[in-house]
Structures are given as C-alpha cells and as structure tokens.
Design a protein around this nucleic acid. Structure first.
Lengths: 334, 334
DNA sequence: TTGTAGGCGTTATCAA
DNA sequence: TTGATAACGCCTACAA
C-alpha cells in the first residue's frame, strides 16, 4: 500500500506537505498541490482512513443494528439511513442480529470498539450493562422504532398505541368480536404496546378475548404461519387476527390458506408496517402504515448533526401511522 | 475513552504488559492478568480496533456492496455473508448503491480506504479504472451473482443460461408462442445472460419475438409494473412474460391486475430468484430458484480463508438454479 | 510556503 | 515474566 511518505519521496517534499496538499490546505502552493495530486494518482494512493480516524478521533462511520435485514421494514430503514449518511460522507456498518438479543449486545460492543461516531439501533435489548454503558458514554445513539424500558434515550418511533387502536377499532367496527393477536418476541416494546392497546380497546368495547387468542411468535413469516395455524385450529377460533407486523400477517395468511379458510370471508387479517409486499394485487393486506424509510432518514439526520456538535437536544420523535384498509378485512360471516 | 495506558497506570504495570494480558498472552502471569482484567472491566475499557488494525495491518472487516438491500434476494445474500463473517469474528460494512454504478465505484473506493480485509461485490460495474485497480491490488474480493465483462475475477453465481432455459422452455412446453422478456439494467450481466438465452431458446424453437416484447427496466417492482403495463397494452401482446427477477415479476403481476388481465389465464409470468414473497399463497409465482443465502455464505467462506492466507485458488463457483412451477403459468387461452 | 517533531492507541521486537 | 522502544500512517502545532 502506498503512503504519503512514498508520495513525498517521489515528489521531493516532506510528508506533511503531502498531507496538506491532499487535504487541499490553503497553505500549499498550487504548483506543489498539482504535483502531489498527479503523483498520488499515478501511484494509486488511497488514504488510510484507519490512521486518519485514529488521529482525528472520528471515523466518519455510523453503526446500524437491525434484528432482521430480510424484513422489508428494516431494509427500508437501512436504506433511509444509508441515503442520509452517504450524503454527509459517512459510512454505515450494518449488523444483523438475527433476532438474538445477545448478538445485538455483541454488535453494539463491536461497533463501539471500531469507534463508530454514532449508533442507530432498531433492536430490543435486555436491561443490560452494555446498554447502561452505552447510555453513560459519549457515543451518541438513537433508537428507531424501538424503546428501551426504563432507560431514557433519543428515539424515532411510530405511535404504536394509536396505530393499534386504528387496527382494532376497524375490526370492531366491522362487527368482529372474536379477535386474536399475534405478537413478536416478548422483549420487543413496540409489540407489547400494540398488544396492550389491543387489550384495552377490546375491553373498552366490553370484549374479553380468550387467552388462546393471544400468542407470541418471532417476527418471521414462518413463525406467523405456525402461530396462525395453531390459533385457527382451535375449536372456537377468532374471526379476525391482528398481527404485530406484516411479516407475521403474511404468515397468518398462509396458515389460513393451509387450513382452507378464505380471507376475508372466514378470517380478517390486519398487519402492521405496510411493507411493499403488503400492497401486491393478490395480497392487498389491510395494515397500519409506518414510514420506515423516513424514520431512517430522520434518525440519521439527528445523529449526524449531534456528532458534528450541532447538538440539538434529545430527539423524541413520534410519527403517527395510519390505517390502510385493503382487502383482508371484512364483516365476519354470520 | 479509556486506553491501555490508563489501565497500566492504575494497575502499576507497563502498557505492553496490559496489552499482552488483554490478548491473553501466555507470557503473562495469571495474577497480573486477573488484575488487568478487573481494572479493565471496572474502567469500562473497550479496545480501539482502529489502532489495532493500523498496527496489525488487518481490520477484521469485510465490505459488502449491494445494489438494492430492499430486494430480498440481496437481503438474503447479506444475511449469509453476515452469518459466516460473524462466526469468524469479522465485521461487515454494508453499502447500498441504490442501483447507481457511480455510487458502487465510490463505495468500493471508500471500503478500500477503510482498509477492509476483503470485498464482496454484487453490483454491476462499468469497465472502469477503479475495477482495474481493484483487480490489480492485493485486496481479495469476490463477485456474487455477478460477472464483470472482460475481467477475470473470482465469483459465486447461478447458472443463468440454465435457469433461463428452464423458464422459457417451460413456457414453450405449455404452448406459448408470444413470449416477452423484461430485463434489468443493461449493465447487469446476469440479466443479459438471461435475455440472451431467452432469445436463443425461442430461436431454437423457431419463434421470433417482436422487439416490443423485449424491454429493460430497473430491478424494482415499480419499473416492472410500468414496463409490464406498456407491454401488455400493445395491440398484439404476449401471452407470457419472463421477468429477469422476482421483483420485476411482481410488478408485472400488478400491471396485469391494473389492466384487468387474469393470471395465468390471460398471462403467464415467470420470475427469477424465488424470493420468500414469491411463495405466498395468493402469489404463487412460478420462478427460477437461486440459493441466495447459500451464495452469501460460500463467498464469505472463500473470502475469509483467502484473507487468512489459506489461499485456495480463484473460486469460480456456478450453482445450478431450478425451476419452481407454481400458479402464475398455464397454457395460453386459445 | 514548507519542514520538524510529537502524538493518536495498539502491537511487536529486543532487552532485562 | 515484564519493560522500553519503535513502529503502523496520518495530522497538526510550532518553527523556519
């Protein structure tokens, strides 16, 4: 690898002159700059960002931790993050925890060791020393679509209570009384919030769901399918299911198909997120839309401006989702 | 940030002793090791990987460049890469080019400046100096589901000719004669290969497609929908469309719906990749399956073993895809 | 306008 | 078993 010393030797100046020329310092004469640049190009010089970051104390990189990159919701957040980061000259190190809490913690530690300038976190966390340490540290970070119980952090999230209320009230308005819920892992706050609101809204309408109609799954299609199959095989089965995200909802759709139930005639389904596949013609999933791409952008904007010291306060941004009624919900058949 | 010097001072030993203790060198006494470790933990020490990488000449990180992370095909590759990288203690820096050739080149340069130990590239590239430079360099890299015209590189890819032949012959066997093709951007080799084979197979069967039945789009649902709408609005329209990937195919499905055409009665559709959404009950897309996750794993395995000097030769791995016949293809209606 | 020297946080070599 | 010392490649006072 060619270094500034090589260039210096070749051009016949000192390394510091090369360094300055390369970073376009006004102190350097036009002539030397040109010579330095041509030699640099000629030798195929690429500046060592590791060394640079070490001395500048800043790596121009941010870390992004997601639980499942194959979920379009997180892929869209990642796209938003990348878009803004790229515009500001920042790199993004993306880590996929595959829904493992432990891996999430490992990645957070790894990213901090790599001295990223900031962190965007979309996965749940146990009340763990690593989290405490992160909060206590100087590394700025922000949560997206996620809250950590009992820990004060900046965040960009959707209003899960509002969204869940829209979903459940829609089902009730259609006349459903037997409404099930399939949530994500218990550690995920947003899933819990949606569940809580589901319970509250039902209660407000004088409906008490059977406990077998409330299930937790992983946030995957397969888990949704299994949970759905089980719930729909009960002797008294719900006429509608509210799923904590679209991926689960699509799994439930599969389960219905497996059991020969027709949607929405025999079963209404509402998802959450409005991933792009939810609007496919044959799918037409009724769901609660969240602006994932936007959330990624907002979080990154805040993070980068915080990194560069234009410290706006803690960001607490709650975006209102909205219900998109498509074709997987209808009146329950009598 | 606390450094080994801080620990050294606290424990009352030299920084080198701390360094050795922390990396569990056999030279250090058990007693000192323990003292060092407890003080390190107590002070919340996190080793600076930047400094470490600088002296070791290796960052334990690999770069991954993808054209579109929201395409489940690439998300799955990314998952495979992450899985293996993680197992070997490597980090992954993921860069999303948003289908821009230029951004792709920028990212490759950026990753090299960050001194990643290796590169996994899934995007197309113009015959560019950056590519030449990469090939001439010591940085190991491998292409996944991609070939660079006229440049000799390691790669893991699917057999696009074989896959496309399965697809087109399936349509011909069903009795189709008016078969269209919607490809990705012209710079993408795999898309071109599929197109070439499409032409060849038709020709072999004595069929000459109208030129309006061959279109290029971006590898996105929206582009597929638009291209599909245009093609299906022709006065003489194809009875079947072979799309260069599933995302485009889903767009074509939307287009058909838009125009009131029923699939597969009025139009058969074959995709490519078999992303997870292709098998949804209501979609049931006939497609050519490629093992994306596997491809990511294979590439990363090779890359890391090459990095660590167990240099197997250039990897040229071609995986055979297979046709999955579902419900978007049938005999053309008379 | 340029050069010298010191330091960023590690690891590695050589002595002790 | 431990400690100095010199790198790694770059940046930046301070001097010239």
């Amino acid at each position: 690898m060619v270094t500034i010393k090589d260039i210096a030797r070749e051009v016949g100046v000192s390394p510091s002159t090369v360094s300055r020329a390369l970073s376009n310092s006004p102190l350097i004469s036009q002539a030397t700059k040109e010579r330095v640049h041509t030699v640099a190009k000629q030798l195929g010089y690429e500046r060592n960002e590791l060394a640079r970051a070490l001395v500048k104390g800043s790596s121009e990189a941010i870390g992004l931790v997601v639980p499942d990159i194959t979920n379009p919701f997180f892929a869209d957040i990642a796209r938003g993050v990348g878009e803004v980061a790229h515009a500001f000259g920042y790199g993004v190190i993306l880590c996929n925890t595959a829904e493992s809490l432990e891996r999430g913690l490992n990645y957070i530690r790894l990213l901090r060791r790599k001295r990223v300038d900031g962190l965007i976190i979309t996965n749940a966390i146990r009340n763990d020393p690593v989290a405490k340490q992160l909060v206590g540290s100087k590394t700025p970070f922000i949560l997206v679509s996620q809250l950590w119980e009992g820990i004060e952090t900046p965040y960009v999230t959707g209003d899960d209570h509002y969204g869940a209320r829209q979903a459940v009230e829609h089902l009730i308005a259609l006349g459903h009384k037997r409404i099930g819920f399939i949530g994500g892992p218990a550690a995920v706050q947003s899933s819990n919030d949606r569940m809580q609101t589901y319970r509250n809204v039902l209660q407000k309408h004088g409906i008490t769901p059977q406990e077998e109609w409330i299930r937790y799954a992983d946030f995957t299609q397969r888990a949704g399918r299994e949970a759905g199959r089980r719930m729909l095989s009960l002797t008294v089965r719900p006429t509608a299911i509210f799923a904590a995200n679209d991926v689960i909802a699509l799994g439930v759709l599969e389960a219905a198909e497996d059991l020969g139930l027709s949607v929405p005639k025999d079963l209404s389904i509402v998802g959450y997120d409005d991933i792009s596949y939810a609007s496919l013609p044959r799918i037409q999933l009724t769901t609660v839309a969240q602006p994932a791409f936007e959330m990624g952008k907002i979080a990154t904007d805040w993070l980068i401006s915080t990194i560069s010291g234009q410290g706006r306060d803690f960001l607490h941004r709650v975006l209102k989702p909205h219900l998109v009624v498509r074709c997987t919900t209808s009146k329950p058949s009598p």
